[in-house]
Nucleic acid binder design. Structure first.
Lengths: 154, 154
DNA sequence: CTGACTGCAAAATCTTTGCAAAGAC
DNA sequence: GTCTTTGCAAAGATTTTGCAGTCAG
């Protein structure tokens, strides 16, 4: 995976190329997503940053604006799992797919060689030059299954 | 696919089994989703119903409540596409995935048995109760590869 | 009759926007 | 110094909830 100094360099160049400015807020948001191999809602990320960099006093609006910026440039990815918004993860890492719990929103990453191979085959059969793919398996995670064993809501 | 009278019967039984009542509003919402092979936001569905059954005067809250009820029982599915909410579709039909051309935006549906089976296996390994899954293969279609047209956003 | 359902409006969430002050270059 | 960015608060957009009247069984 890309190392942090290189990532930072790339990010700075990207900003420069677009007449944008490199700010502490932008760096901290990038860094948090790089360092944590996890998926964050904008709000969770905001909390995390406030805890780690209280003196910066980052506003939630800046978090949203920076996430949009990073996503537009392919540095992070977002996943929509329900009506309660998106989750973001650092994007420049090994390809993987997701299991998403539709009750608690938990995301689990997985990689399956057979599926990757099969996708290549499908693309080939349709004479498609595959550049990317996403797969989400939606369902109910083990914890939620146990927690809600008796079906109550009709 | 299930025929409407059977679906209605199933729905009524489901309600009865849970001490819930069969109402005109609930039937109309079910019927709309059954009859249209399309994806609706709650708001779009609300409009459609108001246009078709103006005398019922269905409230948006009832649409949300009924969609939740139907989804919880697997009669309809929801898809999250961005932070702006979900779309719903009738759920008791054949699954398919998509190939998407990033140059011309063409969308090709496909179904692959091996991938479907493999997904089940993955869900099982994670003790996930799979309710749905989506797979999109992004790339360049045959036509666009030949045309070698300049890249543009979908 | 009784308890569930409904529409309405208000509240709750989540995200975006306007703006004056602060900051990057 | 100039133009972008920021935090704040207000506005938007979407979804949920409280409640009194209505309706199904």
């Amino acid at each position: 995976m890309i190392d942090y100094p290189t990532l930072l360099q790339t990010f700075k160049q990207l900003l420069k190329d677009n007449g944008l400015k490199f700010t502490n807020q932008r760096e901290v948001i990038l860094k948090m997503l790089y360092e944590h191999d996890d998926h964050f809602t904008p709000e969770a990320l905001h909390h995390l940053i406030k805890d780690n960099y209280p003196q910066l006093n980052v506003g939630i609006a800046t978090v949203y604006r920076t996430l949009g910026l990073l996503e537009d440039n392919g540095i992070i990815n977002s996943i929509s799992f329900d009506a309660k918004g998106k989750k973001y993860e650092f994007g420049l890492k090994k390809h993987h797919d997701h299991l998403i719990c539709t009750r608690c929103g938990k995301l689990i990453e997985f990689y399956d060689k057979m599926i990757e191979e099969q996708q290549k085959l499908i693309a080939k059969n349709f004479h498609f030059l595959m550049t990317d793919h996403t797969m989400n398996i939606l369902g109910i995670c083990e914890t939620c299954q146990k927690a809600n064993k008796p079906q109550e809501k009709i």
